[in-house]
Simulated scan of single mutants.
Amino acid sequence: MSIAVIVVDDEPIARHAIVRLLRDDPDIELVGECGDGVSAVQAIRNQSPDLVFLDIQMPAINGMDVVATIGAARMPATVFVTAFEQYAVRAFEANAVDYLVKPFSRDRFAQTLQRAKTRLSAADTGTRGAESIQQVLDALRRREGYLERVPVRVDEKITFVDVDEIVWIKASRNTVEIHLADRVHELRETMTALGERLDPRRFARVHRSVIINVRRVQAIQPWFNGYHVVTMDTGQKLRMSRYQHETFLRLVSMKE
């Protein structure tokens, strides 16, 4: 079988080492090399590879940002390339995700590539691959802490939004709308996944489809049947679910 592969690593030596080893395998068709996250997103979307070797630690847009921009469910089979310490590697192993730790040997690379081939040949590759990628992302995000910037696509570019600029967030199926004071961005991520990456001291889920920036709350008013209306500093009025009592109390205490 022919496997289309893209290699993403900002370190030329590491990237060329992977490319050189891939070229020894007759099953591999190298369709792209990327030295940064922006070009990686574009290449994955344009080339639709079967397999990606993805470096986690890159400046500006890192490997996690690349997956968040593409969407875990839309990512090809992925081999994570990392220099993380052993406890992080154990998280990869527990979630059955392919990985390479730099520096790696030829034998270790061969084992990783074989596992990737086995996964690609399985009938349920798509579902299991997306689940595994999401699991390792969740583990890495817990290690990295809460988001300070969110990568969003503007035309053909990837730009960053500081979380303090976010007024509120709306769920829209498997995407979210990030509302700023003067514009709206769409991000291919679920509300639950994004909510877990936001600092709960700064953001609160007031409805199953709405997350707000608590620092941008201007007023909270009772409505009817136990509901409340939250007015943001932009004038936007958002309904708070009556089941979000703890959120309501926290917001009130912050406004006092």
Rank of each mutant, 00 (worst) to 15 (best):
M1G: 14
S2A: 13
I3S: 06
V8G: 08
D10W: 05
E11K: 04
E11D: 15
P12W: 03
H16K: 12
H16A: 11
L21H: 09
L21N: 01
R23F: 00
D24P: 00
D25L: 02
E29N: 14
V31C: 15
E33S: 10
E33I: 15
C34L: 07
G37D: 14
S39G: 07
Q42M: 14
A43L: 06
S48F: 01
S48M: 10
D50H: 14
L51N: 09
L51M: 15
V52L: 10
P59T: 03
I61N: 06
G63T: 09
M64V: 13
V67D: 00
G71S: 11
A72Y: 02
A73S: 12
A77H: 01
T82H: 07
E85R: 08
A91W: 00
F92G: 00
N95F: 12
A96C: 08
V97R: 04
K102S: 01
F104D: 00
F109P: 02
L113G: 01
Q114N: 11
R115H: 09
A123I: 07
T125V: 08
T125Y: 06
R128H: 10
A130E: 02
S132W: 05
Q134S: 15
Q134G: 02
Q134M: 06
Q135D: 08
V136W: 04
D138I: 03
A139Y: 03
L140M: 11
R142V: 08
R142T: 08
G145E: 02
Y146D: 12
V150T: 01
R153G: 01
R153N: 03
E156G: 06
E156V: 09
K157E: 15
K157R: 15
V161Q: 07
V163T: 12
V163N: 04
V167C: 13
I169E: 01
K170S: 14
A171E: 10
S172A: 13
R173M: 03
R173F: 07
T175V: 14
V176R: 09
L180E: 11
A181K: 15
D182G: 05
E186H: 13
T190Y: 05
A193V: 13
D199Y: 04
D199N: 15
P200Q: 03
R201F: 06
R202S: 13
R205I: 03
V206M: 06
H207Q: 09
R208I: 09
I211Q: 04
I212V: 15
V214E: 07
R215E: 15
V217F: 09
A219I: 02
Q221N: 10
G226Y: 10
V230K: 08
M232Q: 10
D233Q: 02
G235P: 00
Q236H: 11
Y243F: 12
Q244D: 01
H245M: 03
T247R: 04
L249E: 13
S253C: 02
M254A: 07
M254W: 04
K255T: 05
